[in-house]
Design a protein around this nucleic acid. Sequence first.
DNA 1: CCAAAAGTGTTTAAAATACACCCATGC
DNA 2: GCATGGGTGTATTTTAAACACTTTTGG
Lengths: 256, 256
Amino acid sequence: MNFDKEISDHYLRGHEKYLRNISVDCIIFGFHDNELKVLLLHARYAMLWALPGGFINKAEHMDEAAKRILKERTGLDEIYMQQFHVFSAPERFNKKIHQQFLKNAGVIISESWMFERFITVGYSALVDFSRVQPVADVFSNACQWFNIHDIPEMMLDHRNILNKALENLQAQLNYHPVGYNLLPEKFTMPEIQKLYETILDKKLDRRNFQRKILGTGILKRLNETKKGVAHKAPWYYKFDLRKYQKALKGGMGFEL
Amino acid sequence: MNFDKEISDHYLRGHEKYLRNISVDCIIFGFHDNELKVLLLHARYAMLWALPGGFINKAEHMDEAAKRILKERTGLDEIYMQQFHVFSAPERFNKKIHQQFLKNAGVIISESWMFERFITVGYSALVDFSRVQPVADVFSNACQWFNIHDIPEMMLDHRNILNKALENLQAQLNYHPVGYNLLPEKFTMPEIQKLYETILDKKLDRRNFQRKILGTGILKRLNETKKGVAHKAPWYYKFDLRKYQKALKGGMGFEL
DNA sequence: CCAAAAGTGTTTAAAATACACCCATGC
DNA sequence: GCATGGGTGTATTTTAAACACTTTTGG
């Protein structure tokens, strides 16, 4: 299907495929070089950045829609995602941007389900930066990572959604395990600590952190240390997947 | 507007007024006789109980829709409500029930936005049982309170939504103040403790509870004690509205 | 004056925090 | 051999939980 056809099809017949007035936006966090990053799309012509989002197929669970969107933008599968809030301000739509977009795409459409207001459900995910191949969608001309401290101007209320996702991530750090999919298969204690420090944006005590994270039981120490470091070699750890999954559902309760 | 007209109008033209594929369901908790109650509607003909729900006007914030629904069922205004989860299973609709309902109402409709699947956002509220005048909606023939431990069979996934609301309420008890709108203007320490015990469904130590609840600063002691009790008279307290509202937003963090 | 229930502590246990010392490695 | 950063253990503070004694009131 060529570009124009795909666009006009989406605007004219998307409502036959998707639920109306409701969308999903994903806040995809990544971790790299000890920095927390977010994956954003650059909306064509609008000249603004946007969260990767999409719509819900008529016979699809919303959680599946979020995972599908994640997969489309990153190629990643089997990632834990979580809805964190619904955004429903009546002014959260912008017909002008759509018309500008269509005009530039050379498509003339006067009526569309896409011009209506959308309520959006925010989903957040934590992924392994290095395994991601960012892919833009048809509405975008770029898809790239941004440092959490250096976010560009964003569409509509997307900045607000992002802030809420970050707050939510920080708050949940005490109750949900974090790191699987985000750290390499085997990692050292300082590495996982850096991850926590980056998300929380504060320093943690090395010794107390180790005691607590080991206390949750989600880590298994390997019989192997890191090589080639100019100091005492740290142990490698990996996640105990059984306990990790269990903690994801039931929570684990510790304070940092 | 007569009954038939109202029904057929809703089924045939509701989509001109409301957003499609999305609804709001309210879990309205009340407190009475030291029991936690929930307000339910009895769906005509379906012979099942349902959560009070509704739809979102095209130009209305979803939070406003939830408050409007609460007001319609209870007459109450100015109640703190909170979204807690979105329910989006593709099978959460039941065309047959609608057709049964319409048949019994003597209305013939073959196509309607109401026959489609709905994603619903759960909102919870805590209200003063004694100030509520339960009012059924056009789809229901009863509206009444049920003890949380004695819930009847419910439509679709409504029981699941209710359970999630209760879990959420219990979990939030440590971070959000509870009681305004729920207790009389002035109340005693044992009364507010009973409220917490009822929601959490467990006994709390009288002395530790008092220390913690006073520690949050949301209560002000009045210069007045309860009269006519055959033992030492407890003080009356009331909420410090300024601090209460502040704690609603920012959380307060104490453990019970 | 006694039972019932509230007010006001204190004692004890647990958990979070801060901190100190030793160990291994590369330069 | 020393600077760097990791491993382990302990003292201190803070917070939560358990518990005891006194006070007030109606009958």
